[in-house]
Each structure stands twice: as C-alpha cells, then as structure tokens.
Design a binder for these strands. Structure first.
Length: 868
DNA sequence: CTCAACGTGTCG
DNA sequence: CGACACGTTGAG
C-alpha cells in the first residue's frame, strides 16, 4: 500500500507537493539564482509540484529507489573529480547539484526498505524462500508502467504475463499493464534517471538477476506468468513455439511494437548520448517505430521489421557502397553530429531489434544469433535469420569474419557479432545487422560477411571522418576516395581473406593514410630526424624496432578520434555482477557436466580471436569468455579504428594491460576508457596523437604503472607538463596535489622532442620510475642524464633501466653520471653516435667493483645476473 | 536529525 | 538535449 498509491497520487501531488514546494522556493532562488535559474526556480518549483503528479499518472506514485550498496559502483569511493564530486561540499563545491559521484552511480538501484506490496502491505519476502519461482512471487516487483509495487503472488490477474526487466531489480511490467497493452510512456526503469545520461555513468546490466533469478532462463510462472526479457532473449530453450503465446502482451493492440515513447527514459538517455544527428532524429521520429523497450526481440523478431524503410535503405545503400567501394554517403563535412546521427540510427535500429534492457545487451549478439536460430521462423526476417542462422551454425564463417581485418581481438570483438563488443555497446555494432536488413540481395551465406565488412567499413569511415574533423582538416577537402577506399581496402583485406588483418591494417596505415591524408606527418620532423627516416629506420638496427613500435608509419596519428560520440552512444556495462552460470545449460534443460572453471581452463588456451568466436556460441559461453582472466591483456595495437563497440568490449573485460599503440583513438575515447578501467596497470599509447593522449591529463588512472608514449605526435615539453603536472584546480579536500602519473614505474618516451624540462618534471613527479626509455630523443644529452642521476633525485635510486639508444647528443660523459645510480641494471646506448665502446668498457670496469656489468651488445650495458 | 542523492523541472 | 538546481525522500 504504501508506495504506490494509484489513486492517491494525484492528490498527493497536487496538494502536498505544491504546499511543500512553494514555501521552499525562496531558498532555491537565493542559492541557485546566481546563474541559471532565477526565474526558473520559481516557476519550476511550481511546475514541479504540478508535474510530478502527471508523471505518476499511470497509477502508482513512484517510489524513489535507493542504491543497493552492494554493486561495484556502490562500493567505490567517490572519484573526487567528476562534476558531481566537484559540486560536493566535501570537495569544495557548492553542493547544489546533489548528485552522486558518477563512478558511484548504483548499477542496480533497489526499492527502498520501506516499500511494501500495494495489495497486502507487506514487504518483500523472497528471503524466506528458496525456490526461485517462489522467491520471485514473494518479492516486491515494481511496475515500470503503473509504478505499483506488488508481490506477484498478490496479483489476481493470473492469466496475464508480466515482463520482468532484468536490468533493474524488482522491476517489471506488471501483468495488468501488460495485458492492457499499456506502454508505459514514461517508463523508464525506476532508478535510472541518469544512469544513462551521465557521462560517466556506467549503465550496466542490471542485474536483475542479482536477485538470483537472473540467469534462470525459464519463464517464471506463478501468480503471474512472467517473462524475463533476458530470458527470452537469452534463453536458448525458448523455441518459436513458445513465442506465440508470449507475444501478445508485449505487442500493442495493433500488434505493433510499442511506440518509442515507451522506451524507458534511461534507455533513451543512453541513446541520447549518441544522438546528435538530426538525421537520426528525423529518422527516428519519422520512422522509427520504436522498439518496445522490453526486449521482446527474441520473442518477436518481427519487431525488427519495424525498421523503417530509411533504415533499410540506408543499410542497403551502405552495403552496396561498400561493396562497390563507393564513397559513403556521408560527406566528410558531416562531423560528429552527422556521424552520430547515423550511428544513432543504427543504434535505434539495434535497439529496436535488441531489447532495450541493458542486461540483455550483453547477450544481444548472442541472443540475436540464438533468436535467429531459434526463432528464425518468426517472420519476414528470413533473410536475416538465414544469415544469422548460418552464421551461428557455421563457425567457420564467423571466424573468417572475425579474423577479418581486425588485428586485435578486441577489434574482432567489435565485429558485429562478436559477443563482447556487442554486449558492451549493445548497440553499436548491431546496427547494420542482419536483422535490420531484410532486403538483401546477397545470398544468405554471404550476408554475414557482408555485414561484417559493411559494419567495419562504416566504422572505419566514421572514424576517419571524425578524425578528419578533429584534425580540423578541411573536411570538405578530404578526398572521399581515399577514405572510402581505405576502409574498403581494409575491410576487403581483412574480410577477404587475408585473414590476418593485422598486416593489412598496418600497411594501410602507413601507406594509404600517410599518403594522402596526412602529408604533414610526413613532412614533419621529430628530433631532427625526418619522419621518414624514423619510420624506416631499419628495425634490425634500431633498438626500438626490437621492442616496440618500431617507428613504422603511424596510423593516422593525428587524427583523432573516432568519435567519442560514438563512444558515448554506448552504454558501458561493467562485467556482469551476477556470476555467470557455473554450468552450461543444454538444450534438454539439463546442464553440461563440465563446470565453468573447466571450460575456462580450456578457454585460456584460446587466442582472443578464438574467444570471440566462442562468445558467439551461446549466451553462457559468451559470458564465460568474457572472464577477466582471459583478457588481462588486450591488444588493439595498430587497430585502425577504435570503435565504440571495442571500447565497451574493453570495459567489460577490464584488462590490466591495454595496448592502443598506433591507433587513432580519440581523446574522448581514451578519457572515457581510462575512467572506466580503474585497474589498468599498463597503457600503451605509442604512436597516438597528443590530442588523444591528453586525455591522461584529465583522467585518473592511479594504478597505472607502465605508460608508453613513444612517438606520440605533438608530445613535447609543454604537453609533458600538462601530463605530469598535478591537478591545478585542486580545491580544499580534493585530490592530492601529486601527479596523476605518480605511480608510473615504466615510462617510454622514445621519439619525443622532449628536453630537460620534461625530465625535471618526470623526476619530480614520478618517484617510482624504474624504466625510462628516451631512445630517439634527440634533445636528450649528458645534462639530461646528469639531472636524472643528480643527488637528491628519486630517479637516481629508482632507475634500473634507461634506454638512450639513438640519442645522438649523449656522450661518454653520461656513463660517468650513471655510476651514481644505485639501482641501475641496464643502460642502452646503442646507436648513440657519441658514445664509445671504450667508455662502456671503462664503465664496466669501474662499476665491477660494486656491481658487475657486461656489454651485452655494442653499447648495451647489462648488469650481470639480472634479468634483461 | 543529518547526510546522501533521486527524480524532475527549467534554462541555455 | 545537456547542465544545473533543488525539493524531497531514504538511510542511518
């Protein structure tokens, strides 16, 4: 009774609210008035009073949800850096916004403890039961449409089915509403108000399942038959046969999917993140049928039909274009906004197809596949289904696709089908997906690959567009051809057969891009070494070549980013809170004997690429394959375009090491990523643009130990200062004044035009620095070494490995400085013209008294008995 | 009672 | 549509 007063709401609102609020107004103005809301406040307050009621109209007054206190987000501490933290008084802010830290936004807001069943007036009793179904029927469920909170058991409508929202605990669309075909307009899942909009919010899969039922794929039955969206989608068991019965409730009277309006706000918001485009909006408004926000998708494949013609057209067009290698329809001029729009479209499409529920998203890919397999019949989507079905069944195609051009696993993941990516971003990759298109001209079997390539192309294009935009290059001037072609090339290469996308990608980067798009790069000089020289330095000769990114061609360095926009479009969910099932459910309803750990042991022997394939096998494998342990190191090196899908896939896997070297990741992307990878220890950004790397200036990655910034274009002293300087906007109580990179022990700065100024900052702000790579830094000289080894510096004792190879200003004198280093184990002076072998031998002789060194290679000093 | 922060309105 | 502001709810 308490919470959901169906009838009372209005009264409550009108009366209570107003009364309460009016009085308060004055205050608001006072405080807030400063800037924005002077007038607003007054009016708003009034409005509020009135409006609230309206929202609740559906029926029950909505109960405010509260944080679960258990989820990953809830247990975090405030970041102190986000907008909301900065607003907090404790961080020196005015305290007006009153919002929780972005990093702490509850993933699964729960009903307040005071919530009780509207029917019986009692609280949830699921704790007293063991049986899953019983639990469900005894727990409080809040209807996202009418807001009523009830025990399913207390409902009298038993013939109707409720639709459980797996994304939010204790949230469903009650049988009544369902039966009535209500489409909650407002309906968002309670508790999600901002999760989606906030820049940092992690939308995640809610663990509806947290309750414990989550994974149960079965349809719940009891007082009311309940369908879980996730179940539907995910459940392999569901067969087409089952579908019919379930469909009705979900569909609107007309049988059409619910209007978009129904989409829960939070879902929408998520979308918003990405929407910028008018096109999109237009499209959506015009066409989009909207997908029912519940995920009926699986059940109702038809929804996909809802796709607007435009969409279809677009998709088709895209395909064709890609196939033909024609330039994408988008002009370069379009910038983010355009891109976004398009993306949005995709998203929407996806959403339409996919369930809005985030949790499901994870499995969207799988689901789709599953659905397709299982639900193929469902309808017109024949084509898609076919393609999908084939895909699913035939792993080989999938493999091919995966292998495509994606070098990295992640990238592969990003491939539309890849489980990981899809889930994370739910949307992104799916867009072009199969379902969306019905009218394909290609033979089904080819569809899959076609789609993949198409998507890849699209993404690449977007990336390029965005890059171009960011670079501020004349968008218009950009040769569309080049762009188009490149992508195509890439795709083609990848897709078609080269299988090893890696090589292709690299080449592309070097050749194609360098060629037309970034002349400046070529012309540019670094450290006095011409760009070309650097890049073509014989790898064998260059120390760098040995290790890392030998100066090959930068991908398109400077360009930035594949829009953040894209990224923003995707809701990132952290790894599912609910542990994945321990056993693999089989078709017959039983479980496979091998436990998850056994499977994981097997999976651990697979490459990331293979894991991505496995993720497409079934939902369970999808989850298992996302186990952090299998993804401690994610390598996206030289991945030409970093897509939102990839980003979300990365977040989901929470790698410890992330290699984004020679990619075109944008600042926003990187920033976004870093903020969501609290456990990241190793970040490799060599060859990226400073614009992107500058994300490190504003993001926090306290645990970062290894930072590779080699050959970062545009990274010089001023930038190093930005990077290393402690936050300047410190407020009382806020963050400490230490550099965000203070814990870095391994810093790689090869190929940068940095001078002693930067070294001083490094010395000052990186007390734990052990490995320092300054190779190819032509401004580094003996004085630099002197600084690093000067008395009173932390580096003097912390440095163990210094790479000064190809530093032509370093002379024998430096060796004498290194004698001061207490922990030095390795000094690489190879190819430093002014360093003589004699000096090295002298160094060894003198040091041998204390520490035995050897000349491992010409001018490569290595402490004996130490690990190289 | 205090603190946190949800959910909504308004403005730019 | 996002940013901001704030009344009010919920927890302790």
């Amino acid at each position: 009774m308490a919470m959901s007063l169906s009838a009372d709401d209005e009264d409550y609102d009108s009366d209570t609210a107003e009364q309460q609020r009016l009085p308060n107004r004055p205050k608001p103005k006072m405080a807030a008035s400063t800037a924005t809301t002077p007038a607003a406040t007054t009016s708003s307050s009034t409005a509020t009073a009135v409006k609230l009621p309206s929202n609740r109209t559906s029926s029950g007054a909505r109960r405010r949800r509260t944080r679960c206190r258990k989820c990953e987000a809830c247990v975090r501490t405030e970041c102190g850096e986000c907008h909301f933290c900065k607003d907090m008084k404790k961080f020196g802010g005015p305290g007006r916004m009153k919002q929780s830290c972005i990093m702490r936004q509850c993933i699964a807001p729960v009903l307040p403890h005071t919530a009780v069943c509207v029917v019986c007036g009692e609280a949830g009793k699921e704790d007293t039961l063991d049986d899953e179904d019983e639990k469900f029927n005894a727990m409080l469920m809040e209807c996202s449409i009418c807001n009523e909170i009830v025990h399913p058991n207390c409902l009298k409508v038993k013939d109707a089915a409720g639709v459980v929202n797996d994304e939010l605990p204790n949230c469903w669309e009650c049988p009544k509403c369902n039966y009535a075909g209500k489409t909650g307009k407002q309906k968002r899942g309670p508790g999600f108000k901002y999760a989606s909009n906030l820049p940092g919010s992690l939308l995640r899969e809610q663990k509806a399942g947290r309750d414990g039922r989550e994974e149960g794929d079965q349809t719940l039955t009891g007082a009311a038959s309940i369908k879980r969206k996730s179940e539907r989608e995910e459940t392999p068991r569901l067969k087409n046969e089952d579908l019919p019965s379930r469909l009705p409730p979900l569909l609107t009277p007309s049988g059409l999917p619910r209007p978009r309006s129904e989409v829960p706000n939070f879902l929408r918001k998520k979308r918003k993140l990405f929407d910028d485009d008018e096109e999109e909006e237009e499209a959506s408004s015009k066409k989009k049928p909207k997908k029912p926000w519940r995920s009926e998708e699986p059940l109702i494949p038809k929804l996909s039909h809802m796709r607007t013609e435009e969409e279809e057209d677009n998709s088709d067009e895209e395909e064709e274009r890609q196939e033909k290698r024609e330039p994408p329809r988008r002009s370069f001029k379009k910038d983010y906004s355009t891109v976004r729009k398009e993306e949005v479209h995709e998203e929407e499409r996806r959403e339409e197809r996919d369930s809005p529920f985030r949790s499901l998203k994870e499995f969207n890919t799988l689901k789709k596949e599953e659905d397709q397999e299982e639900d193929k019949d469902e309808d017109d989507e024949e084509e898609e289904d076919e393609s999908n079905g084939k895909r699913v069944r035939d792993s080989s195609p999938a493999l091919k696709n995966h292998s495509l051009s994606l070098e990295s696993d992640a990238s592969r993941c990003s491939s539309p089908r890849a489980g990981p990516s899809s889930e994370g971003s739910e949307t992104q990759e799916k867009a072009p997906r199969p379902r969306a298109r019905r009218h394909r001209r290609k033979p089904p079997n080819r569809q899959l690959s076609a789609e993949l390539s198409k998507q890849l192309n699209m993404e690449i294009r977007r990336t390029e567009h965005s890059l171009a935009n960011e670079n501020q290059q004349p968008l218009k001037s950009e040769p569309e051809d080049s762009e188009n072609e490149e992508p195509k090339r890439g795709l083609r290469n990848g897709t078609t057969g080269n299988g090893g996308g890696g090589g292709g990608g690299v080449e592309r980067g070097a050749g194609g891009e360098g060629g037309g798009e970034r002349p400046h790069l070529r012309a540019r000089e670094m450290n006095g070494t011409s760009w070309e020289l650097r890049h073509f330095y014989p790898p064998q000769i260059t120390p760098l070549g040995l290790n890392r990114s030998s100066p090959t061609v930068r991908p398109l360095p400077a360009r930035s980013p594949p829009k953040c926009v894209q990224m923003e479009r995707h809701v990132i969910r952290p790894p599912p809170i609910c542990p994945p099932p321990d056993r693999l459910p089989l078709a017959d309803g039983r479980n496979h004997i091998a436990p998850r750990e056994a499977w994981l042991a097997i999976f651990s022997h697979l490459s990331h690429r293979e894991l991505c394939v496995c993720m497409r096998v079934c939902r369970t494998w999808n989850r298992w394959c996302c186990d952090k342990r299998l993804w401690t190191h994610i390598d996206l090196k030289r991945c030409k375009s970093i897509t939102p899908l990839m980003l979300s896939g990365i977040i989901r896997r929470q790698p410890i090491t992330l290699d984004l070297s020679w990619t075109n990741i944008s600042k926003k992307q990187l920033s976004w990523l870093i903020n969501r990878l609290p456990g990241l220890r190793v970040l490799l950004l060599s060859g990226c643009s400073w614009v992107a790397v500058s994300a490190l200036c504003t993001s926090s990655c306290p645990l970062l130990r290894t930072l590779d910034l080699q050959w970062v274009e545009g990274l010089k002293d001023p930038q190093m200062r930005d990077l290393l300087s402690p936050p300047t906007d410190n407020r009382p109580g806020q963050m400490d004044t230490r550099s965000k990179l203070r814990n870095v022990t391994d810093l790689r700065l090869a190929g940068l035009d940095i001078t002693d100024c930067s070294l001083r900052l490094i010395i000052k702000n990186m007390p734990l620095l052990s490995l320092l790579d300054l190779s190819y830094c032509n401004h580094i000289n003996d004085q630099s070494v002197n600084l690093l080894t000067a008395a009173g510096t932390t580096t003097r004792d912390s440095l163990t490995d210094v790479n000064l190879s190809v530093c032509n200003r370093v002379t024998d004198q430096s060796l004498s400085y290194f004698k001061r280093c207490g922990s030095i184990c390795r000094i690489d002076l190879r190819f430093s013209k002014q360093v003589s072998r004699q000096a090295c031998e002298r160094f060894i002789a003198e040091m041998s008294v204390i520490v035995p060194f050897k000349l491992q290679e010409d001018k490569l000093l290595q402490k004996l008995h130490s690990t190289p």
